[in-house]
């Protein structure tokens, strides 16, 4: 029962490290460029100075991006601390989307979300909720065609927050990855009072407030 969430965590960590490695590669390139400019000369040519500054700014930018990204990852990692805590739906969706960007862009699917800030705080397992949303997105991405959309919307409705994950586009015929059974996910979510249902291109997740 825990293996599916572990796969999810493993995927997030793997994607995260790849992303950070990309950032590092960029930093390395920029540093390499400066190094190239400096090497073999007595002093740096004034004409080349803008390239140096540009590269240094690129490094600083990259660092900022990395730090932000690490921030999201950190937040995500701490979601596993407790099976119950108080959290904002928008912040969990935000970090999940940041961490899944790499996965979706590889599939050329754009992820969008629209979560009203006015929704009440939830008292639940943020990790398992993210897992549920991940399941929905993952099940679509595994059979998606390029240039399609996945949107997540949410609304409050008599004591529940209803989250809808919708795929806009066609499914491909050639699926080469195992798509998890919704029943497995439902069983895992039975640890909480989160309900999940799916039909073709829509997954609905219901969280009691």
């Amino acid at each position: 029962m825990i293996d599916k969430p572990l796969v999810f965590v493993g995927k997030i960590i793997a994607d995260f490290t790849h992303e950070i490695n990309n950032h590092l590669a960029l930093i390395k390139e920029s540093a390499g460029l400066i190094s190239d400019i400096c090497k073999g000369k007595k002093s740096i040519d004034k004409k080349e100075m803008p390239y140096v500054v540009e590269s240094l700014e690129a490094i600083e930018n990259q660092i900022q991006k990395s730090v932000n990204f690490i921030g999201y990852f950190n937040r995500f990692a701490h979601r596993m601390d407790n099976l119950k805590s108080s959290f904002k739906l928008s912040s969990t969706v935000e970090e999940l989307f940041e961490l899944l960007k790499r996965y979706s862009s590889r599939k050329k699917v754009s992820l969008k979300y629209d979560i009203p800030e006015s929704l009440p705080d939830l008292e639940n397992s943020p990790f398992l909720l993210e897992f549920a949303i991940f399941y929905a997105i993952d099940s679509f991405l595994k059979k998606s065609k390029p240039d399609t959309n996945i949107t997540v919307t949410a609304k409050g409705e008599n004591g529940f927050v209803k989250l809808t994950v919708k795929y806009e586009g066609d499914f491909t015929e050639s699926i080469n990855q195992e798509i998890w059974q919704i029943s497995t996910i439902q069983e895992i979510l039975s640890l909480t009072n989160i309900k999940i249902t799916s039909n073709d291109k829509v997954v609905n997740i219901e969280i009691p407030v």
Binding site: V9, I20, S66, F73, N74, A77, D81, N82, L83
Partner: peptide, 19 residues
């Protein structure tokens, strides 16, 4: 399981933090 997840989370967060 929760314990396992929490420890994975802590480890991951700690390592990421080191970066």
């Amino acid at each position: 399981h929760a314990d396992k997840l929490a420890s994975i989370g802590r480890l991951a967060a700690g390592v990421a933090h080191e970066i």
